[in-house]
């Protein structure tokens, strides 16, 4: 049966109709809301390309049923900051020219931003630990670590 739901994404409320309550949040964000930031990488919660913040917690939207969201606030990479008001991690990411293809970027930046929020001055091992469950096939791992450490100095 079709259910009506309201999703709060990047500060805006969106009403959607859902046929299958088990539909992962990723499909609601991409297909119903037309948001392109979270990406489909594996659908198994193994890579991180679909990561968004759910009430500030980095979450793999490919594996979270949309019906489990409730009133939680969702933030995508687009909602982290923008050119006028960038998040310090976005600035650092550009300074370090971290990415190559950038397909994985949601996982790394959303995990990195969450780390800085709970620990504004992480050590290098702490950053590596925070990134331990992410995949990047371009090999940008060390550059991502450098970007978080650079951003930490500015937070």
């Amino acid at each position: 049966m079709t259910q009506k739901m309201t999703l709060t994404v990047n500060g805006h409320q969106h009403k959607i109709s859902v046929d299958d309550p088990d539909m992962p949040l990723l499909y609601a964000l991409r297909d119903d809301l037309g948001l392109n930031n979270p990406r489909f990488g594996c659908g198994l919660g193994q890579c991180g390309a679909c990561t968004v913040h759910v009430d500030g917690v980095p979450t793999r939207s490919c594996s979270l049923p949309v019906s489990a969201i409730g009133k939680a606030k969702i933030t995508t990479l687009h909602g982290l900051g923008n050119r006028q008001k960038p998040h310090p991690l976005q600035t650092a990411w550009i300074e370090e020219q971290v990415n190559q293809c950038g397909y994985c970027i949601n996982g790394w930046m959303m995990e990195g931003a969450a780390l800085l929020k709970r620990n504004p001055n992480p050590t290098e091992p702490q950053v590596r630990e925070a990134f331990s469950d992410l995949i990047c096939r371009c090999g940008t791992h060390n550059a991502a670590v450098r970007a978080v450490l650079r951003a930490a100095k500015q937070v």
Partner: peptide, 21 residues
């Protein structure tokens, strides 16, 4: 000089083929 595509990717502005609707 820095790459223009990277800023777009960092701000979630870079569309890939899967984003075409």
């Amino acid at each position: 000089p820095k790459r223009p595509d990277l800023a777009k990717k960092v701000f979630g502005e870079q569309d890939f083929p899967g984003d075409v609707r």
